[in-house]
């Protein structure tokens, strides 16, 4: 097993669905970080078999809505003095703004310049959202 040092103070984003770690890493801008970061892919997981995880040796602001939308099974661990001081379980956000685009060409979002694309969660179990304006369905699982 690959060994990576535990961190003293920072954040561990755990239980990322395998394959999603890199896009979250990029989304958080960690590819440009000037502090210690580690992206671990396909690590063994008792819960899911395999998982990705990200270790960040720094306290950065995380957009939990966005992370929850990418993968609601993610766990965010806040580390102080090498110990987990807070464990945040994410879930699908009730509302997502400016993250996904409505694909309906007849939707008002396709023509208005400064409109913010906004989706509302309508089915938590199936991860189904609808466009607030035209009701177009967006399924989280694609």
């Amino acid at each position: 097993m690959l060994y990576i040092d535990s961190i003293v103070r920072g954040i561990v984003i755990d239980h990322i669905k395998p394959g999603y770690g890199f896009s979250i890493f990029k989304y958080l801008g960690l590819d440009k970080a000037d502090f210690t970061v580690a992206l671990i892919m396909n690590a063994p997981s008792r819960k899911y078999g395999r998982k990705d995880l990200i270790k960040i040796e720094n306290n950065i602001d995380l957009d939990l809505t966005m992370l929850g939308f990418i993968d609601p099974n993610i766990t965010v661990n806040i580390i102080e003095d090498e110990k987990i001081v807070e464990k945040i379980n994410l879930s699908l956000p009730e509302k997502v703004e400016g993250i996904i685009q409505c694909k309906n060409p007849r939707c008002i979002t396709s023509t208005e310049r400064s409109i913010i694309h906004r989706f509302i969660l309508i089915d938590k179990d199936k991860g189904i959202y609808k466009c607030e304006y035209c009701d177009q369905i967006y399924s989280w699982e694609g």
Binding site: R106, I108, E112, I115, Y133, C134
Partner: peptide
């Protein structure tokens, strides 16, 4: 009335007076 779906809802966020959707596309 607007050919684009959801236009009246978008308009309502900025309207200082009551707004009625008189038809928005096929919506």
């Amino acid at each position: 009335r607007h050919p684009k779906e959801g236009a009246p809802r978008y308009a309502s966020y900025y309207s200082p007076v009551p707004l009625i959707n008189a038809g928005d596309g096929g919506h």
